[in-house]
């Protein structure tokens, strides 16, 4: 069973994993109100258990700077929802700060047992295949080695072009939290955090996909 994003977000947040604050909008007014509360700019997303690759169905509106933009985006996502998945929710989420985009994953592998992974995130994950793995439980030194196996990590760590340097400790803290969470939840089959935004000051999961045993 795939959890809708807002439910995944709450589970992670309860487990102490840094996530972007979000609210479920029940209508255009509620979306504007949530955006005001979270602070502009915000993102609106379609939170569907059926379509987990949101960007591919056009289910994301980023960098909405005022109430009018929120209303416009809400209307668009609402009509997308009606055509694709009437069960889906529309969520308003604080925009992540500018930072490196990584991927953090977990899977309970039939043969290898619990496995954590990290990689170059966003849409490039599948293009570059720059991803590394460790079996859980793992020590922090193991997780650091995993990170250092990534081709892209040294550059992201130093700061690449206009992206500020991605802090290693913040990212490792987040991975440790994910590992602890995953090992404590027997029903968790799979977890994808993509992207995880990493800056000099922190690391936050900006999108989450959780698969539970049904």
């Amino acid at each position: 069973m795939i959890l809708p994003e807002h439910e995944a977000n709450r589970l992670l947040s309860d487990a102490g994993i840094p996530v972007m604050a979000l609210a479920v909008a029940t209508g255009p007014e509620s979306a504007r109100e949530a955006a005001g509360r979270l602070g502009f700019p915000v993102a609106l997303k379609l939170s569907s258990a059926k379509y987990t690759h949101k960007s591919e169905i056009g289910g994301i509106r980023l960098n909405l700077n005022n109430a009018d933009e929120v209303s416009g985006a809400y209307a668009e996502l609402d009509s997308l929802r009606n055509s694709l998945d009437p069960e889906a929710g529309i969520i308003v989420e604080a925009m992540a700060p500018k930072g490196a985009e990584l991927f953090v994953g977990y899977q309970r592998h039939e043969q290898f047992g619990p496995v954590v992974s990290v990689g170059l995130g966003g849409v490039f994950l599948e293009l570059t295949g720059d991803v590394a793995f460790r079996l859980l439980p793992a020590k922090r030194a193991d997780l650091r080695e995993m990170l250092q196996e990534l081709k892209s990590w040294p550059k992201l760590n130093r700061g690449f072009r206009s992206i500020p340097p991605a802090n290693e400790d913040h990212l490792l803290n987040l991975i440790e939290c994910v590992a602890k969470f995953a090992l404590s939840r027997k029903e968790l089959a799979e977890l994808d955090l993509n992207p995880v935004i990493v800056t000099p000051d922190g690391a936050w999961a900006a999108d989450a996909r959780i698969v539970l045993d049904s």
Binding site: V115, L125, E190
Partner: peptide, 11 residues
């Protein structure tokens, strides 16, 4: 999907 990106050998 990312969970299966592994491929056995990489694991």
């Amino acid at each position: 999907h990312t969970g299966s990106l592994a491929g056995e050998y990489r694991l």
